[in-house]
């Protein structure tokens, strides 16, 4: 088990995981979100290759209504 911070809250993963597996675990379509790890934006093409490790701060954003 590893502990990360996901959108400001503690979150556990079974093991270090690719961004793409986190998104599928969360049932999120990659085309609808963007991901940041430790304040670095991750390019969509890198979702398979980028691994989330112990202690990483991960942000997953989407679009909401606004003015």
């Amino acid at each position: 088990m590893i502990q990360i911070e996901l959108n400001g809250e503690p979150y556990s993963l079974d093991a270090p995981a690719a961004v793409s597996s986190l998104l599928s675990e969360l049932k999120l379509k990659p085309g609808r979100v963007a991901v940041e790890i430790n304040r670095m934006v991750i390019a969509k093409a890198e979702y398979e290759r980028t691994i989330i490790n112990q202690g990483d701060h991960v942000e997953v954003i989407n679009f909401v209504g606004c003015g």
Partner: peptide, 19 residues
């Protein structure tokens, strides 16, 4: 149309997306 950038609500499943 304008939209805002916000954190995905992780705890809420079956969430709908504006897009």
């Amino acid at each position: 149309v304008t939209v805002a950038v916000r954190r995905v609500n992780i705890t809420e499943r079956n969430r709908e997306n504006l897009l």
